[in-house]
Structure formats: C-alpha cells, structure tokens
C-alpha cells in the first residue's frame, strides 16, 4: 500500500508568535481515511492548510511521493483537494458550472474540456440540475455538493474535509455521507463529530496544543479521549 502523505517534524509558528504546530509526524496510505480530532485551537486547521502548501512551516512534507517545495506546489495542489468548512468562501464564481470549471481551467485545460469535466463531476455529485444556478441560491447541502464537485474536478488523490456536515439537516447529512463514502480517494476528515468519524474513517489522530498526542483505531481514540457529545 503506497503512502500518499508522509510528514515528519512539522512545525509552524504564526507571525504573532503562537506555536501552532510543534513537531507533527503523520502519514496516510492511499484509499485510507483518517479523522483529525482535537479541541478548538489545537492546530488541526493549521495542519490541514499545510497539506497543500497554503501555509509553509518547517519539516518535511511529501505528497504522493513529491516533496512539497515551490516547484511542486502546483502539482501538489491538484493532488490534495480541500473542501473548506464555509461553502460560501469556496464557491466564489458567479455560476455553479463556472465555479466547478475554475480548478480545471487553472490546471491548463481548454475551456471546452474544463466545462465537460465540470458537467461530469456535477452529475457525479447529483447536481446536474444546477449548472447555471448562482451559488447563493443553493441550499447548504447543495452548496457542499458543489464545493466537493469543484475539488473533484481537479482529480485529486486525497480529499481533505473540514467539518463537512455542519449546518446540514439529518437527511441531507445522510445523503452527503453516502456520497463521501462512495468516493475512492484517501480522506482526511477534520471534525468534532464522533459519529461522522465512525461512519467515514477507520483511523483517528488526536491533536493537543500543536502535537499529536494519540493515534489509532477511530473507536479506540474516541473512547480514550472521551471525544463524544454525550
């Protein structure tokens, strides 16, 4: 089984002096799904922003065998698809189709190819009815699906999902979960929700003050850290 993420000794300090990441070692195999747990401010989101080089700390990051550096940044960003928590921030183009085509166009596809790919991916996530809609007319669940389509259109090997089911009602959440489960990519899921983690991942990593203080089977980690709402 090949490693798609291999990280050793990652450290990051914010400009204001906060040590957000303090020596992180992490790995992910292809097709595997891992949950990131930890209190608010424990460094999960900062960590995730390193996976595609949006933040650059010390330490080594290898994505699909490529070392993260200025020269590999573009390739790595197409390998790691990040679905952000706030869909409104992710869907910035005037129509759904243009938004999903944004990534492929940046990859250098011709406009026709980019639109074809966007249509295919939108059908894949069940949003074929909304090509010309404006993003702000969509429901929360539809926005999330389009955001995922925008990332899938880049043909990534790793999906990073930041709290993918917040603000969704139970049926929408169920549908989204089955969509996510059907995607073959390796997944990194940032969440507070133990149920979501159990449904989507097999392994979990626990963050505390910029370090990983526990990792293992997702059910075992949830029990060890009492990481459930009730």
């Amino acid at each position: 089984m090949s490693r798609v993420i291999q990280i050793a000794g990652l450290r990051y300090r914010y400009p204001d002096g906060t040590q957000a990441l303090d020596g992180i070692d992490f790995h992910l195999n292809s097709g595997e799904s891992v949950a990131l747990f930890g209190a608010n401010g424990s460094g999960k989101t900062t960590f995730v922003l390193h996976l595609n080089g949006l933040l650059r700390g010390e330490g080594s990051i290898e994505i699909c065998g490529m070392r993260l550096a200025d020269g590999t940044l573009e390739q790595i960003r197409s390998k790691v698809g990040v679905v952000f928590q706030d869909s409104d921030e992710q869907l910035f183009m005037p129509t759904v189709l243009e938004d999903v085509a944004f990534g492929p166009l940046n990859l250098g596809l011709s406009p026709d190819d980019a639109l074809t790919r966007a249509r295919t991916v939108l059908k894949r996530v069940g949003m074929a009815h909304a090509f010309e809609r404006a993003p702000y007319h969509l429901s929360a669940g539809e926005k999330k699906r389009v955001a995922i389509a925008g990332v899938l259109a880049m043909d990534p090997e790793i999906l990073v999902l930041d709290e993918p089911t917040t603000f969704l009602d139970p049926p929408t959440r169920r549908d989204l979960l089955s969509l996510l489960r059907s995607l073959p990519q390796a997944k990194v899921v940032v969440t507070h929700d133990a149920n979501l983690a159990r449904a989507l991942t097999s392994r979990a990593v626990f963050f505390d003050q910029g370090r990983i203080t526990g990792q293992g089977d997702v059910i075992e980690i949830i029990q060890r850290f009492h990481w459930e709402y009730s």
Partner: peptide, 23 residues
C-alpha cells in the same frame, strides 16, 4: 477574514493570479 478564506480556496484549486476567461 472571509476574503482571506476565499483566497485560500482559490489557491487550493490551482489559482495562479489570473482568471481564465470564458470564450
């Protein structure tokens, strides 16, 4: 902060400082 978030989302999808215009 929202503008920062949007910019991150753009970079994450391969934005290189230029919007590709539609034909």
């Amino acid at each position: 902060q929202r503008a920062d978030g949007i910019y991150h989302a753009m970079l994450a999808r391969g934005f290189r400082g230029r919007f590709v215009p539609a034909p």
